[in-house]
Design a protein around this nucleic acid. Structure first.
Lengths: 329, 329
DNA sequence: CTGTTAGCGCATTCAT
DNA sequence: ATGAATGCGCTAACAG
């Protein structure tokens, strides 16, 4: 087994000083070194199987060539598609991704942020767990931050999100064009910007059609499967239940369909935000608004890399909105 | 904005030496310090908002209190359930999880491993991307390693996996008890231990029932949705297609059902390994074998923590097999 | 273009 | 029980 070599070993093997080795290895920056020396150093590195000590480098440079990503949960393919999009960009830029879960809790999110700053990540991409963003604002004073998928109040940060309002407007519009007028909204947690924006798009579509929805057609709350299930129960309990429904996200959509599967007496046409490989099997699903999660991730990855590279201070923060695709089934 | 304080600042504020601060902060080990001093140090730490420099500590101790997890892909809820199981255990033990994707490539896996060792992770949990495991074996010489979900050849490593053989035996048995005798197997990549073991369980069930499957009932290959789709095409093209089918995993299962959705003339009852919240909507699905991914993760987390704590050298490696649950639909 | 030197912040002997 | 001194491996001035 090959002992761990240090930069000094490489220096000796190549017959140069450690500073020279460091210059050769320090990226393709302007560390002026003769071609011959460079070659010898590289050779020694190969021969010894040298790997730079990351901790020592970080200690010295106060940078770790990593960016931290915090998602509300790991077991959510939308978030992970996002993460993979980010990872691709970072990889290409020689950066490594650190991934952690906030378990949908702002408290946990704060802990993760601390863990990441302790590890001297050069930047962070965050899918905020909640709506309070003071800690994110404070964080952004210290290092590059990009928020994705969701907004947070009171912190103007670089942001990459889908066009939730427009998407839900279209989704609702598709149902309207099919002739439905009594359209409900199986909504979500309005402390999340996504849920608010989607509700807003739904509302605008109805308004433009001159329709005033019954209050009991609109049902808000959590955004999990169980929430969708109970939400459907509530909506069907109204006097004049809607004949069609817009679901705020995939999980609520799934819960809604599960309820309808268990209680087939309730008929309903559904247009749902988000898509999945399983969507073709959801019997009541008529339309979906597909987000391009990987692309969101890529954009976020590019943005964070830009900010890191150019050490952008508080430049005006950019907000990127990506379109969604309406599909019919 | 609060400047970053060092251990020296804390020492001064508390009127002690840096060595003492270090002793107080170095976990709850036997660093003998008087209660009074300890109190003063803690107070100073709080007052200054001191956070130890992780890089410096790692450089000195050659440990980072992190464990790396490598999954073949992030956007796979089975792997991420696993990861969350691991994370829970690590968290409780004061360790941090680093997560990376090998993109189903052994080459990428090697790169990730290097990135992790560079970062001085104290141990690694790996879902192997392929069947070649020399690099894993070599890795295990250097630090604690646990492989999960899948086996790798030629490296005896600590392992946590589901009872794939038994699960598939039961799954097939359930179909047999329903009276089906012509049962096919929409299998997967037999370089993966999971696919091999499941095939084996299927074979044993048929053998015990005295049934010899037609060769064309068994179809192997990739383990994605598209693979399942094409696999179904192949299986139905045989002279005497089976009347029921065991699907090696969720993705192949999904692909199979998608084919059958597009070609309703093919009838088929399906028993599939793995489950998902969408399973109730798969019309042809009769049985599933549900793995407890979170539990696998927990076990793996516990095992890696044990090995790290006790600096277990090459103790005999333990293989943990977790049962799966057969559900009918 | 290259070598010498001086820390980065911490844990850890070795004294006391 | 505590302090002083040393060095982990690396990069960044500063010289030459």
């Amino acid at each position: 087994m090959m002992k761990d070599h240090t930069i000094r070993d490489v220096a000796e093997a190549a017959g140069v000083s450690t500073a020279t080795v460091s210059r050769v290895l320090a990226a393709e920056n302007a560390g002026r070194v003769s071609e011959e020396t460079r070659r010898r150093v590289h050779f020694a590195v190969e021969a010894l199987g040298y790997r730079a000590n990351h901790a020592a480098r970080s200690l010295k440079t106060r940078s770790s060539r990593t960016v931290g990503v915090i998602a509300p949960e790991l077991a959510n393919s939308f978030f992970m598609d996002l993460a993979e999009g980010i990872e691709g960009v970072l990889d290409a830029g020689g950066y490594t991704l650190l991934l952690a879960s906030s378990s949908n809790s702002v408290e946990e999110e704060k802990k993760r942020i601390s863990a990441f700053t302790d590890r001297m990540v050069d930047g962070m991409v965050i899918i905020p767990a909640g709506s309070s963003g003071d800690h994110l604002k404070a964080l952004a004073e210290r290092l590059p931050v990009v928020q994705v998928d969701r907004f947070v109040e009171g912190a103007d940060l670089d942001t990459v999100v889908s066009d939730n309002e427009g998407g839900c407007f279209e989704l609702t519009g598709a149902l309207l064009r099919d002739g439905y007028t009594r359209i409900g909204f199986a909504g979500g947690d309005i402390t999340l910007s996504t849920a608010r924006e989607r509700l807003s798009g739904y509302g605008r579509a109805l308004a433009e059609a001159g329709i005033t929805p019954e209050p009991e057609w609109i049902c808000l709350g959590g955004m999990g499967i169980e929430d969708g299930y109970r939400r459907m129960e509530t909506i069907l309990a109204g006097k004049t239940p809607p004949e069609a429904l817009v679901a705020v996200n995939l999980l609520v959509h799934l819960g809604v369909q599960r309820y309808l599967l268990d209680h087939p007496e309730g008929k309903m046409i559904i247009a749902g935000f988000d898509e999945s490989p399983f969507t073709p099997f959801l019997p009541l699903c008529r339309y979906t608004a597909a987000q391009n999660a990987v692309e969101i991730g890529k954009q976020a990855g590019c943005r964070i890399m830009e900010k890191i590279r150019h050490k952008e201070g508080r430049t005006e923060c950019r907000i990127i909105r990506l379109p969604v695709t309406i599909n019919s089934h």
